[in-house]
Design a protein around this nucleic acid. Structure first.
Length: 753
DNA sequence: CGCCAGAAGTTTTTT
DNA sequence: ACTTCTGGCG
């Protein structure tokens, strides 16, 4: 076991180990099971191992627990009452299914929310407690009810030939646990087990690796208990803290030299994490530069914060940093909003990782549901989604009738429909069902005839008239949806290009198990992402924002010591992402749920001693309110740290009344020794001028706001917005004709003028 | 069945 | 502030 602190070369250790096993110990890559935290990490490691060994590493089992378990389960599905075409349900699908179950049982959503039922079921699964083990053990009525819902939910999943995320892990455990033949086969197969980010494994994952490696003990795990941030989804920090007791003969190594951050950043990180009680003893150090001191700023509100942070970033860019060197971190996805607004306005290229993903959009989910029902006709959840989409006259009553009739014959709804007698229905419902039935038999023919996934979706779109209906709506929103669907078609085509033998099933699995972060590539734009998504990444310049009680720590985690420690680890993860500079900020007030809410500085900062960072009270500076006023130097602000008593608001009169002459604050005085850096940031008159954002945009971004393009169909125009990145890049163009169009960069026919 | 208006929920984090 | 859900009505 390797305790590898942030930035100590954790990934390198793991890669080197695999390469060593393959090259020096002659272990076949196919006999290695290596679990990583993201698909992206897996892909990179596979490539690095191949490069280090010069061998083909296609057979190497490396990936997330979820994707590797899905792979194993597809091979062994028949042993647990599934077939290999099972669908993987995401959170949305889980909720649809749970809602149906609660409705069937006449349980009011107010007495038991689908989400809360799913959460409790998820906890059982993460601990590998099957329904059978709980049956009859409920102490209260509510307990017994929940347990019985758990059973019903699992039954429904099985009927749908579907598994949720948690099932992928625990079903693998149940399978190996309950079937000796299968277990021995896989045990023999995996001669070596390696796990990255071991601090974030849950009980089910622990049981799995124990099943694989428990007997031979060839297990190698890397992790950092201080970066354990997934307890809320069942991760057990005890797994890493108690590893040596679980696996006899464990050798423990500690990596404490950090190769990423400056001393200033590490000092702060160490002093933050030292307040935690549940942790292994270790301390990061670096032989590197002291670096610029960490700056913590107080802002009036989230808009002010976004405005000032973007100013600071604009300066960094003008002074030679690339947008890709900069990251804005926050606790919740919703916080990206104010930054997004400002970055748009100032034309600074940015990219948001996470949040509502492309595949969660309504029109995309509709398309995916059609594809799923073709690959797995038992999938009633997907079938229910599309049975009347687009509207074809099949209403609630008809749907209920079909569901009941299907259940009576022990068939799924799609299976029932395929063999149903149209004459048993009447009117519009009959017409619609005949239409749907025809459509599905058509797609099934294409599917069994091995037509590429793209053809199948195109057939569905044509037969349903989905696109035509959207076109007829003739709204901006509908046009956006059409663009999204073309983008989906593109994604499918790209998938087929990358995986010539790729099946529809594999495509569907990929889009469910691949996270937004997996597609992210460094370099093009300022990255905005949550602290959770940022784990494992590093950036020269980091802005850690919204450090307020209620956000970080979240309201839900403020009163519980263990939960508070996890929030502290989250802060620690954020701090240790920074290589050269770190700017921390919080707001005194924030717009939440459309309401202004008074916020206070995070209690996590209270335990940090003075001198760990420089505090700047930016809320007392008023340039934010009257940005067009001429710049005048301001009398030096008294930098004071006053957490706990910092509830004094700046003397801003209601109605934005006249304030005393203000000035932009002096840029931070460099406090470090590097002469070269000194020259670069020496405060000059020029620095005080408003940054020229056009200049700032002059970066290696091919497509950016403000660029003029010529389009084959619409003529010349200007890009007014760029979203997404890589192959997903989308642009919004204002054409000289006055037309505004959103298009996919990859798809649109245009040239840069 | 489909439309509309008003109500209710959203923001903790993700595979 | 914004989206999604719900119930009543034509």
């Amino acid at each position: 076991m390797v305790f590898a602190g942030a930035g100590t070369g954790k990934t390198r250790v793991l890669t080197a180990r695999i390469a060593w096993l393959v090259r020096e110990r002659n272990v076949f890559p196919a006999k290695i099971f290596a679990a990583t935290f993201t698909n992206k990490a897996a892909k990179e490691m596979r490539e690095r191992v191949a490069k280090l060994t010069g061998l083909n590493c296609d057979g190497l089992w490396i990936g997330t627990f979820h994707s590797m378990c899905a792979r194993l389960l597809r091979m062994e599905a028949r042993h647990i009452g599934y077939n290999s075409s099972f669908t993987i349900y995401d959170t949305d699908d889980q909720q649809s299914l749970m809602k149906t179950i609660l409705k069937e049982r006449g349980i009011d959503e107010k007495s038991l929310q689908p989400k809360s039922a799913l959460h409790r079921i998820s906890s059982y699964k993460n601990s590998c407690i099957p329904f059978a083990e709980l049956d009859g053990t409920g102490k209260s009525y509510a307990d017994r009810e929940l347990i019985s819902i758990y059973g019903a939910y699992q039954d429904a999943l099985k009927r749908c030939n579907a598994m949720d995320f948690d099932d992928l892990i625990c079903n693998t455990v149940y399978l190996l646990h309950g079937n000796e033949e299968v277990r021995e086969q896989w045990r023999k197969r995996f001669e070596h087990v390696l796990v990255d980010e071991y601090q974030d494994t849950n009980t089910a994952q622990f049981r799995l690796i124990k099943l694989f490696a428990g007997s031979h003990g060839r297990i190698f795990v890397v992790g950092d208990d201080d970066q354990s941030i997934y307890a809320w989804r069942g991760a057990k920090i005890e797994n890493i803290l108690g590893f040596a007791e679980q696996f006899e003969g464990t050798k423990v190594f500690k990596l404490e030299q950090n190769y990423r951050s400056t001393t200033s950043i590490l000092d702060l990180a160490n002093s933050v994490i030292a307040n935690n009680t549940v942790r292994a003893d270790k301390k990061l150090w670096t032989a590197g530069e002291p670096g610029r001191e960490v700056v913590t700023s107080e802002f009036r509100d989230d808009r002010h914060e976004a405005d000032k942070v973007s100013d600071k970033i604009a300066r960094l860019l003008r002074d030679g940093s690339k947008p890709g060197d900069v990251a804005i971190l926050y606790r919740t996805n919703a916080q990206s909003r104010s930054f997004e607004d400002v970055f748009r306005k100032k034309k600074i290229p940015y990219v948001i990782v996470g949040g509502l993903s492309f595949y969660e959009r309504k029109e995309i989910k509709d398309c995916i549901a059609y594809l799923r029902i073709i690959a797995n006709p038992k999938d009633d959840v997907s079938f229910s989604r599309i049975i009347n989409v687009p509207a074809r006259g099949i209403g609630d009553k008809t749907q209920e009738k079909i569901a009941a009739a299907a259940l009576a014959q022990n068939l799924s709804m799609a299976e029932y429909l395929a063999g149903a007698d149209a004459e048993s229905f009447t009117g519009t419902a009959k017409k619609g069902l005949v239409q749907l039935s025809k459509l599905l038999s058509g797609t099934t023919e294409l599917y069994t005839g091995d037509f590429p996934p793209k053809d199948i979706l195109e057939y569905v779109l044509k037969e349903t008239g989905y696109i035509n209906l959207l076109e007829a709506e003739d709204t901006e929103e509908a046009r956006g949806r059409i663009e999204n669907i073309s983008e989906l078609l593109n994604a499918i085509e790209e998938f087929s290009d990358d995986n010539p033998d790729g099946t529809l099933l594999q495509f569907l699995e990929q889009i469910t198990l691949v996270a937004d972060i997996d597609k992210w590539e460094p370099g093009q734009a300022v990255t905005m992402l949550t602290l959770h998504s940022a784990k494992g990444l590093e950036f020269p310049h980091v802005f850690l924002t919204g450090l307020e009680n209620g956000i970080m720590p979240s309201f839900a985690n403020m009163d519980d010591k263990a939960k508070l420690e996890e929030e502290r680890r989250l802060l620690y993860v954020g701090i240790t992402r920074a290589m050269k500079t770190l700017d921390i900020s919080y707001c005194k007030s924030r717009l939440r749920f459309g309401q202004w809410t008074i916020m206070g500085p995070s209690m996590l900062l209270n335990s940090v001693p003075d001198g760990m960072y420089r505090f700047v009270d930016e809320a007392a500076m008023f340039d934010y309110f009257e940005p067009d006023e001429p710049l005048t130097p301001r009398s030096s602000p008294s930098p004071s740290r006053s957490f706990g008593s910092s509830d004094r608001f700046p003397s801003r009169q209601a109605g934005g009344g006249y304030q005393q002459p203000y000035g932009r604050k002096e840029p931070p005085q460099p406090s470090w020794k590097s002469a070269a850096r000194d020259a670069a940031v020496k405060p000059t008159r020029k620095v005080l001028e408003a940054p020229n954002y056009d200049e700032v945009s002059q970066v290696e971004v091919v497509l950016r706001t403000g660029l003029r393009i010529g389009h084959a169909e619409y003529g010349a125009g200007k890009i007014v917005h760029v979203s997404g990145f890589g192959a997903d890049t989308r642009i919004e163009v204002l054409f000289d004709s006055g037309d505004r169009k959103k298009m996919m960069a990859k798809f649109a026919k245009f040239e840069i003028l």
